[in-house]
């Protein structure tokens, strides 16, 4: 299963980005293959509106099934994620990616 994180950097020790639509990076961990990839999302800075749906679409293209983030996606983004079959977990804004993954594994994050 592919798990996506919104983050401010590109590795396990990076701080989470609490924002969803305008997150700087998307990190994807495949817990079956144990692969870890990072995707630069900083282009989103150029979008005046509609950042949420755009980032959601990216998540879909990356094949993520789970999203771990901080504040939770806004209305439009939530609709896309739902259609894309991505489950969202929120409340990991203050953690680093490693801690966020642990919290998710221990069922400590709230499902959006």
């Amino acid at each position: 299963m592919k798990i996506a994180f919104t983050a401010k950097g590109t590795d396990w020790d990076s701080q989470m980005d609490p924002r969803f639509g305008r997150t700087e990076y998307i990190l994807v961990y495949d817990d079956e293959k144990e692969t870890f990839e990072s995707f630069d999302n900083r282009d989103i800075e150029n979008e005046a509106h509609g950042a949420g749906p755009k980032t959601s679409q990216k998540l879909f293209e990356l094949g993520a099934q789970v999203l771990i983030t901080g504040n939770g996606p806004g209305g439009n983004a939530a609709t896309v994620l739902q259609k894309a079959g991505v489950k969202s977990f929120i409340g990991a804004g203050g953690m680093n990616v490693k801690e966020a993954y642990k919290a998710y594994k221990n069922n400590e994050l709230k499902e959006f």
């Binding site: 749906p53 679409q57 879909f60 439009n76």
Partner: peptide
């Protein structure tokens, strides 16, 4: 130009507010 129409795999989604 407003990201109001998005293609998600085999479907097209429209966001009326955008």
């Amino acid at each position: 130009n407003f990201h109001a129409v998005i293609q998600l795999g085999p479907q097209i989604m429209v966001f009326p507010e955008l």
